[in-house]
Design a protein around this nucleic acid. Structure first.
Lengths: 189, 189
DNA sequence: GTCTATAATGAGATAGAC
DNA sequence: GTCTATCTCATTATAGAC
């Protein structure tokens, strides 16, 4: 990927996560990138193309991050805590959201391809959490009482909701409080 | 409140909950209300005025609904299930969000007054959930292991996140799965 | 209270020179 | 690959007639 193209995707990702898909324009990105609006159209003919490129790369990055967490975690519980930290970092200091959380709010505004990719990204994370719960149940590092597939969806909802509450309050304390019941299920030894 | 004014607030609320604050225009509302754009400005000079009116009424309605749930519920557990049902109903068939969930995503777009009102509305619901957890713990209808104030924030996050997942998937099954761990804590007798 | 008409601004997108 | 210039359309908002 060319330098300019990568810069544009970086700026667009940041914009989408702070102001939503409908909340940024080519003019914003152009100003930050130091080029003109028309030049962006050379790299991404339509806004949908740009949005799709951002989401595509994002899904890839998240997948890689979850793999990295797996490799650094001996116990399932450690991996779960790593995922919480990933969502915490994505929220910045309370102004941003992970891309999936941000796009869900704008899902009536984006093209069909983006909506499908968003659904697949959510489902990918839910499956990773499910596998992590299974691992944590085997190695006795996570308390799992119900169906892991369903508990995984519940945890994903809690993570995304925690981002929303933190942003609405402009305060990361809300995030930490909202996810503390997930962390409480991990046994530390 | 005049009929027209009420109609406009109704339409704007629906629009904000499906497409977000930035995702609807006076033109949309005017078409649905059967009047012209300029006429809306007579009732609400700026879009911020309209948004504020919607949010103000919404916070009031939610407060009343929670009161009604309290009065219909003998046990804390019944009240908690009632709140889950309230959030489920607000999600429609998977295209809408409760106003607080929708506005959190657009919180960089709205005026300061709306952001403050949003934070207060979230806090009001969290306090209601906390009181409900306390009641449920006393009457043995809800399993509460940790600090009720913190668990309440966690539950609110899960409710809002469940709405996001359902909308991203376009499928209310996701909502039901995501909140099932809340319902599982209620003992039915 | 609603209308027509019209700003004034910003959006996404295109053509064609360099 | 980037630019200037322009197009078309939608946005919020206002002025003034009815």
């Amino acid at each position: 990927m060319s330098d300019t193209r990568e810069t544009l995707v970086n700026l667009a990702e940041n914009a989408m996560r702070t102001r939503g898909y409908g909340g940024f324009s080519y003019a914003d990105i152009a100003r930050d990138a130091g080029i003109r609006k028309a030049s962006i159209h050379h790299h991404f003919p339509t806004k949908a193309d740009l949005g799709l490129a951002v989401l595509d790369r994002y899904a890839d990055q998240v997948s890689r991050q979850l793999d990295a967490i797996d490799q650094q975690s001996r116990l399932g519980g450690q991996a779960l805590l790593g995922a919480i930290e990933m969502y915490r970092a994505a929220t910045g200091s309370g102004q941003a959201l992970c891309l999936c959380t941000a796009l869900a709010g704008d899902s009536e505004l984006v093209c069909d391809d983006m909506r499908e990719m968003l659904a697949r990204a959510n489902s990918m994370v839910a499956q990773w959490i499910e596998q992590t719960l299974l691992k944590g149940r085997r190695d006795m590092s996570i308390a799992v009482s119900g169906d892991p597939a369903i508990e995984a969806v519940a945890i994903l909802a809690q993570l995304q909701g925690a981002q929303l509450l933190a942003r609405a309050a402009g305060d990361m304390d809300q995030f930490d409080r909202a996810v503390s019941t997930i962390a409480a299920r991990v046994s530390r030894r």
